[in-house]
Design a protein around this nucleic acid. Structure first.
Lengths: 150, 150
DNA sequence: CCTCGATAATTGAAACATAAAATATTTAAT
DNA sequence: ATTAAATATTTTATGTTTCAATTATCGAGG
């Protein structure tokens, strides 16, 4: 369905307005679907995002501020996300030795284990995106990069 | 900057993974910028979304469920959004005569007035998107439609 | 015209997000 | 060595979202 049909708006002011609405709509569409997968594992998309970042660094620790910088949603309260993950024993946290203001976070074996189960489910879900070709996906990606280029 | 640089992830599993992350990231990027505009008028993006839908119908009223269906964020609690708009006298609400379960909502003159001031600001902001051509914007839009095509 | 399932909207409680203030530490400048 | 500004994180207060439960009404089938 076209964005026109989906949000029942017949006319747009410009291609840019249509694109903006389409991007937000499509991003929500993706996130709701993924949320259903995350829910089975009792985590949120934001928590998954943190775990993915931590795995990328493993076995090195990473500071809270560096996590915040890499998040898809820059406004997330990273401190509290980590609190939640700590309670579930998916991450460890300790004061950074070089800079005692900072806090080092590292993913636990339990956290890595959880991701190992989640990965194939996310990968399987991604097949839903194959309505466009890999080339088209790369084309959109590069146009989005150009769009944001500040 | 490429999404690789923005979220500091060097490798992606597939063009589809990169696209997914890029879409969510870019949608957040857009929404944070627009939020700065909405804030001056003391409304949120969700409230703006409702007002835009109501203006599209004006002077006809529209049911709460129809608003919900057209929202970009389907999970929004439309009832409570309308509560907020009602307090600010931007909308009116009354029981629907044909179906007494339903509630008809309509935008007020004050609401239309607010949009009239906001419009040029949003339009001006949209010029930021002109780093891509109108043709490229339409191309992304149609590929996103194809991507979601369920 | 009565019952039952479906639909429309609202609410309550818990979880979560946001913005601003607070705390602790580092860095840089005198 | 002392102060001031900057940085890293946490907390507080407030507002928003979410999920499930609730209330009210409609419409179809007996």
């Amino acid at each position: 369905m076209s964005i026109e049909t989906d949000i029942k708006q017949k006319k747009f002011r410009s291609p840019y307005q249509r694109l903006g609405l389409n991007l937000v709509y499509t991003s929500n569409w993706i996130q709701y679907q993924q949320m259903d997968i995350f829910r089975e594992y009792d985590i949120t998309s934001q928590q998954f995002n943190v775990l993915r970042i931590l795995r990328g660094q493993h076995p090195s620790p990473i500071k809270v501020s560096d996590i915040a910088e890499r998040m898809l949603d820059k406004n997330s309260n990273t401190s509290r996300l980590i609190d939640k993950l700590l309670v579930k024993k998916l991450v460890d946290r300790k004061s950074c030795p070089n800079d005692r203001r900072a806090v080092d976070v590292i993913i636990t074996e339990t956290g890595l284990e959880l991701l190992k189960h989640l990965d194939p489910e996310i990968e399987a879900w991604e097949k839903n995106l194959a309505r466009i070709t890999p080339e088209e996906a790369d084309l959109i990606s590069s146009l989005l990069d150009k769009l944001r280029n500040s």
